[in-house]
Computed example of a mutant assay.
Amino acid sequence: MGSSTAFHLVFGALAANALPTVDYNFRPIIGVLSQEPSESLLDLLEDKNYTSYIAASYVKYIEGSGARVVPILIDQDDSYYENIASSVNGILFPGGAVSITNSSGYGAAGQKLYEHVIRANMEGIYMPLWGTCLGFEMITYLAADFQRWLTRCDASNKADRLTLQEGYMDSRIFEQMPDYVIDYVRLLNTTVNFHRWCMTPEDFTASGLSKDFKALATSYDFDNLEYVALFEHNHLPIFGSQFHPEKNPYEWASDEGHSAIPHDPFSVGVAHYFSNFFVNQARYNKQAFATKEEEQEALIYNYDTIFTEALGSSFTEAYFFR
C-alpha cells in the first residue's frame, strides 16, 4: 500500500466531514468522564489513593482530531458538573467496568451530564454526546427511563464488521462517511469489542428507544447473538458505539485477551473517521470557560500518564485522579 493511500485512509474522513467555516469553533474542548478504578488496576500501582481514572487512549483519540480534553471527575457536587458541561463543547462517556446506575460515581455523574445535554440541546445549545461501550450502555439506560435493557453476551476481544441497518444513510454519521469508509466497516473486521452485555434489536424496540434513536448497525457475538453496535438520536447530537474505536490506534496490549484489536490502516482510518466526526460535531458548540486561567486549570495537561501496560494492565497508558 502506497503512502498516499495510507494518508487518504487516515485523513479522508476529516475532509468528508468538513463543515462551513462560518461561526465554527476551531478550539473545541471535550469533557471525558472518569470512573472508579478496579481493585485489580489499583493493585498494579504503588499509590493506592486514586479515586478515578481515564484511559489515555480516549484522550489521544480526541486530541488526534484537533480537540483538547478536560477530565470530568466523579463524586463532585452539582455545581461542578453544571460548570463543566456549560464550558466544554462536547462530552464523551468512555467504556469501563463500573455500574451504569447512580450507585457508582461514573453512573451518578453520567446521569447529571446526560440531563444537562438534553436540556442544553432543547434550549438551542448544540451539545454533542458520545458513549463508547459502557458509555453506550449508560445512554440506553438513561434514555429508557432508568431501565436496564441489556442481555448477557460474549463479545469480548472480538473484531467485527458492521451489519448496516435499513435507513443507515439517513443519519449524521453515515451521510458524511465516504463510500470507501462505509466499505471498510461493512466488509472488514475494523471494529473491536470488549463487552459482556448487549442490547438486542428486539430490546432496542421494546424499550422504546427506537422512538427517539436510530439503530444504524449491528454486530454478532461469539454465539451469533445479534446486538446493536451503533446508534444516534433522531434529532439531538447523541451517539453511541458498543465497539471501541479509540483502541485501534492507541491500545497495544499484547496479551491473548486483547489480541483482536486491529491496527491495520483500514481499521485505524475507520477509528479516525469516528473521532473526526465527533470532534466536528463539537465544533458547532461555542461554549467556553469563563477565563483562560480556568480553562488551563481544567485541561488534562495538568496530569501525567502512567505507563500501565508495563505494569500488567490492558491499557497502554492511563491518567489517574484523586
Rank of each mutant, 00 (worst) to 15 (best):
L236D: 04
D160S: 15
S4T: 03
S275V: 14
E226V: 14
L162R: 12
E317V: 00
D47F: 06
S40D: 12
T140N: 09
A15G: 15
T316Y: 00
S267I: 00
A206R: 13
Y24T: 11
L216W: 02
K214G: 03
S219I: 07
V88P: 05
Q281E: 15
P71I: 03
D255S: 13
G269L: 01
D183T: 08
A282G: 08
I139V: 13
F146K: 15
R119N: 14
D304I: 02
P201Q: 15
E232V: 07
S267H: 03
D255P: 01
G167D: 05
S34V: 01
W197Q: 13
L33I: 00
D170S: 13
P71Q: 06
A271S: 15
E202W: 11
Y227E: 14
A144K: 06
C153A: 13
V268H: 04
P245Y: 00
N17K: 14
D78G: 03
L209S: 06
S171M: 06
N102L: 10
N157K: 10
D47A: 07
A16P: 12
E36W: 00
Y114N: 02
A97C: 01
K292M: 03
S275P: 12
T316Q: 01
L164G: 10
N193T: 09
Y106S: 12
V59P: 03
F11W: 09
A310G: 08
N193E: 07
E175R: 15
F307G: 01
N189F: 08
F320A: 00
D212I: 10
L134P: 05
F194L: 08
E309K: 14
L92A: 05
Y250F: 15
G2D: 14
F204M: 12
Q35Y: 00
E82C: 03
G105S: 07
V10A: 08
E115G: 01
V59K: 06
T316A: 00
N49Q: 09
A298I: 08
A109R: 02
F277N: 09
Y141A: 08
E246L: 05
V69W: 11
L9C: 02
Y303S: 02
F146T: 12
T140D: 09
L45G: 05
S156P: 01
E123D: 14
A318N: 00
N157C: 11
V22H: 12
F231E: 03
L299N: 06
G66D: 10
N248C: 02
M1L: 13
I84Y: 10
N121A: 09
R68I: 04
A67K: 05
P128Y: 11
I29S: 04
E202D: 15
A85S: 14
E294P: 04
